[in-house]
């Protein structure tokens, strides 16, 4: 019995959220006196297996098959289900990424096992998995018991747990033969693309002034532009602003846009959805201007200005002009 962590990899690289999941899995395993095994699915992935083995896991299980060369929900689902016939586990974890929440719910449904996604905490006590997540737009926390185990499937919210450091020890790497003869992958992977842009690169800027829903009108973005100019920075946007077409996609900060870590980040009317916080919380100094003192942005901000940004920014501009 133990905890399995499904590693996410793409284009020859383990994806960062996987390390965070390993960190949390290690914590749960210590308190539950059980083991953590990393699961790597792919084709010719021995380099990645060795990399995983440097982290604090008891074993790296590798399922290799040419049909697993490209990630597909069907391939991962079949391989993981087949692996679970050999490996008894109480808990299967992966990260809540566009990949993690694409395949893990499907596997849980295929196997008729309990599922919680985007958990911000998980525990394993006497064989019972309890996961905590938020609901109602992050305003309510829900502690959920996952009955029936065998195993429970959980995706963990990114940017929530601390990744472990690699150590001098090497965990054993074990190839696992699973029967994938019945596997039919209907999805074809054509490749990847990164939409090119000639716009400024907000990830390169020292100062980013980001506008969120609180800016209210497209015309008001001018205020943020003036503030960015006064601070020698550029204007970024939260997702709703980009979806409204008020600023180009190249300006979007967050896990679905760009990750930024400037010297100064000024969030203007950004409430701070998790995917936004993920993309900016590494900034050196974070200032948030928001009318709602309970907005999640204040959980990562260093300075919070409570009030109407349509009044605060003009006043701040006047202050900055004073010599």
């Amino acid at each position: 019995m133990g905890i399995l962590v499904v590693a996410e990899h793409r284009q020859g690289k383990i994806q960062d959220p996987t390390w965070e999941v390993l960190g949390k899995a290690g914590e749960v395993a210590v308190s539950a006196h059980t083991e953590v095994k990393a699961v790597l699915m792919g084709d010719a992935v021995s380099d990645l297996a060795s990399e995983l083995a440097r982290y604090p896991v008891n074993e790296v299980l590798v399922v290799e098959d040419p049909r697993l060369k490209d990630y597909t929900p069907e391939g991962y689902g079949a391989a993981l289900a087949a692996l679970l016939e050999h490996e008894e586990a109480e808990l299967v974890l992966t990260s809540h990424t566009a990949t993690g929440y694409e395949f893990l719910p499907r596997v849980a449904a295929d196997m008729d096992r309990p599922l919680v996604t985007a958990a911000m905490d998980v525990s394993l006590v006497d064989g019972l998995v309890v996961a905590t997540r938020t609901g109602y737009n992050g305003k309510v926390a829900v502690e959920i018991a996952m009955e029936g185990g065998g195993p429970a499937f959980v995706t963990l919210r990114p940017a929530t747990f601390t990744p472990p450091e690699p150590g001098p020890k090497r965990a054993p790497v074990t190839p696992v033969d699973v029967d994938l003869s019945a596997l039919q992958i209907r999805r074809e992977v054509q490749g990847y693309e990164k939409p090119e842009s000639e716009d400024v690169d907000i990830a390169e800027a020292d100062v980013v002034v980001t506008v969120g829903r609180g800016i209210k009108k497209k015309e008001n973005i001018r205020l943020a532009e003036d503030l960015a100019a006064a601070l020698g920075g550029v204007v970024g946007a939260s997702r709703p602003i980009v979806d409204n077409g008020w600023l180009p996609r190249s300006r979007q900060v967050g896990s679905s846009g760009k990750t930024v870590a400037p010297k100064l980040y000024v969030a203007c009317g950004v409430s701070g959805a998790m995917q936004h916080l993920t993309g900016m919380k590494g900034s050196q100094t974070i200032v948030a201007i928001n009318i709602d003192p309970t907005a999640p942005i204040f959980s990562v901000a260093h300075y919070g200005a409570i009030g109407d940004l349509l009044e605060i920014i003009p006043s701040l501009l006047r202050e900055l002009e004073k010599a």
Binding site: V116, P293, F298, V300
Partner: peptide, 23 residues
């Protein structure tokens, strides 16, 4: 297979220095 054990309003772990007062 899921049972709610507890719902609660999460505390916002506010580490920001809050600037309040007039604009």
């Amino acid at each position: 297979r899921l049972t709610v054990r507890r719902m609660y309003i999460p505390e916002v772990t506010q580490q920001a220095e809050m600037l309040e007062g007039s604009v």
